[in-house]
Every structure is written in structure tokens, then in C-alpha cells.
Amino acid sequence: PDPCYDENGNPRRCIPDFVNSAFGKEVRTSSTCGKTPGRYCLVTEKGDERNRNCHTCDASNPKKYHPPAYLTDLNNPHNLTCWQSENYIQYPQNVTITLSLGKKFEVTYVSLQFCSPRPESMAIFKSMDYGKSWVPFQYYSAQCRKMYTKPSKATITKQNEQEAICTDSHTDMHPLSGGLIAFSTLDGRPSAHDFDNSPVLQDWVTATDIKVTFSRLHTFGDENEDDSEQARDSYFYAVSDLQVGGRCKCNGHASRCVKDRDGNLVCECKHNTSGPECDRCKPFHYDRPWQRATAREANECVACNCNLHARRCRFNMELYKLSGRKSGGVCLNCRHNTAGRHCHYCKEGYYRDLSKTISHRKACKACDCHPVGAAGKTCNQTTGQCPCKDGVTGITCNRCAKGYQQSRSPIAPCIKIP
């Protein structure tokens, strides 16, 4: 059964499955340890006692490297794999990780599980144009005002639902490992309960790429002391699992996304829609404007009615409104000698052959009015009767009427018999 149609075959809203769209995808990072083998140290605490265990990060050694792929590989809590940045990239320098989702997704949450202490400050951004421009999604900082010129935990109103807020939650240094940051895109947004009817929030949760910028490291404050080298080798960003929970964006017109011929992820559009996000009507289905499907209304696209005489049509808003928002399609290039917005009557010089349906290829026949006996070439649409000159008769005006005889004049071909 197709989720996009009910058991009677009627269209209904359908949405792809909820997935972790980051899983298995490549993540670009601005810094990864081990390009040249180097030391890093892990700090553990027991009461007031602090210990450092140092290791080597070496990109050329599978047992010692921490590549970006570990961000989105299978997250095995019993065998954590962690991506790790180089050491001590401290504010104002930052480390950025960027994930391309491959197409538009409606993001529900972004979560990061850390192997290091969580950052003192970090920001999550999204792009809607495949990385051309970026929009802030959320800030985390113990110093919101100072780091991001944002108040901490500002209230979100209907007027600023598309604004990123800054919060100081999840910014403490502990736990030193395993800390989680999870950002829910709709949390605290007033229109979240009515998401279906909120284009603002639908736009807000839509993303093609996610970028996380780690802006400031937490430290114990020993990075500038005399033997600071070991201390600085303990400060880096390390994440074991980056998740981006959401659904492939298909505007309610597809139940799944597939790879197209070029390997791009696209929606498997139903309801006569097309485009990577099912965001327009497919050709020839312009009888009403495209709309996103809702829980109550599938809003499928409807084919133009051209009685099989045209392959193309266009939408006309005026006609649509005049029709009470029923039909706005206008057929283009009616063939088989038909005309009208639905190719539903015969064009000038032709008349209906009522023995055939209007959708028949030969539904319109040429008038065939006599070149001399008829006063014009256009005949009656339904009877085929041509306009005859005085004294002339016949459906094509090719004979003199009773009481008349043919003359030599093409102007008055039939004259009364004296």
C-alpha cells in the first residue's frame, strides 16, 4: 500500500520516515588531530585529584587516528570512536564541522555527544542553499552577551520565531567526557503546536547543511602557567556522535526519498507533484496552484482538461478565482482544429461532428463552404451550415434554390427564373 493514498485510492498527506540524516555522511572539519603525529592528554578527576593520561594522535595509524568519519559512524557506546581536533585552538580561533545533508530536510534536532568537555561556547548554523549562506540556529555559551552579543535565554515570541537564541545550559565543563548537547528546533517556539499552518516555522526547520562552530574551549585555567604545554595538550574538541534528526522535506507529497540517476537524494513525489522537494506541480497538472499537503487536505496537483487536444497548459489565477477556486488551467496550442481554454469547441472554419465525442481526434470537420455560392467561409458550429448568397441553398451553398438558375456572375451566382 502507498502511504500517500488511502485504501480507496484517494490522495492523502504522506511524509518520509524520521531518520538521523547525518548517519554515514561525510563531515568536513576545519581541524583534525594527527596530520603530524602529536601528543594529547586526557584528564580524569577523582575528588580533588586530577590526572592526565597522554596519548598520540596519528592520522596515518588506524589505531591512533580520530577522523571526521567517526562523527557519523555507527555509535557503539561500548566502543566509542571520537573525532578530535588539534590541540588548544582557543578563542578567538575556532573549529568548525560542516555536514551536507544532500537535500532539504526538516530538522527536528541536532545533537552532539562529546568525548572531551563540552565547549564553553559553541554555535549551530544551518544553510538552506547548500552552503552558500548560513543562518544561526542556536548558541550555547556561559557568556552569551560577550561571545555572541545575545542575551541569555531570551523569550521567543511570534514575531521572532526564526531567531536563534543563546543559552548557557549544557555549558558547564563537567562531565569531562560523554556530555551531550541536543538542540530541538521547535522547542519554545509559540507556533510549534500548529506547525502545519506555520510557513515561518516550516522555513525555520528547513536545512540543506548543518555547521557547528566550537568557539571557546573550557579550561582549568592552567594553560598559561609555566609547564602549560601539557596542559594545552589537554584542551581540544572531541565528538563521538553527531546526529541530525529530521525528515526528508517533501511538503507532504512523498513517503520517502531516493537517489536519482545522478546520485542526488530526491523525494519520490506523488500527487502529481515534482521537484526535489515535490515543491511544484508536474507538467500539464496546472489546473490549480501548487500547495503543501496538510493533515486535512492532500492538495494534489490536477491535470488540465484539454479533451486530449493539447499537451501543454498554464495556470491562470483570475480564471481560478472566478471558478470559485476550482479550475484555472488554460490549454496551449489546441490541435485537431479545436479552440477554447479546454479545447472544447471547434475553431473558425470548422464545425462539430456530433457523431464523435469532443475528445475524438476528428471531432471537428472543415466547413467546406462553396467558393462562389457561400457568402463566407465560417459555418455554424453545430450544423455545419455555411452562409449562402441570395438564391443559393445547400449546407455548403453549392446549388441554386428552387425557382432560381445559375448565372455567369460570381457575385450573384443564382438569379430568379423569369
Binding site: 467558393p371 441553398t393 445559375q406 455567369r408 451566382p413
Partner: peptide, 24 residues
Amino acid sequence: EVMPTLDMTLFDWTDYEDMKPVDA
């Protein structure tokens, strides 16, 4: 009684050359 169809060869086109159908 059916009247014969108009006979195109009988018409005098002297003053109506521009009206004369191609096949006449």
C-alpha cells in the same frame, strides 16, 4: 427535385480575377 450543383466553368471572371478560386 434536386438542383444541379453550381458549374464553376460557367462563371465569367473578367472583372473578378482577384476573387477567382485557384482550382476554378
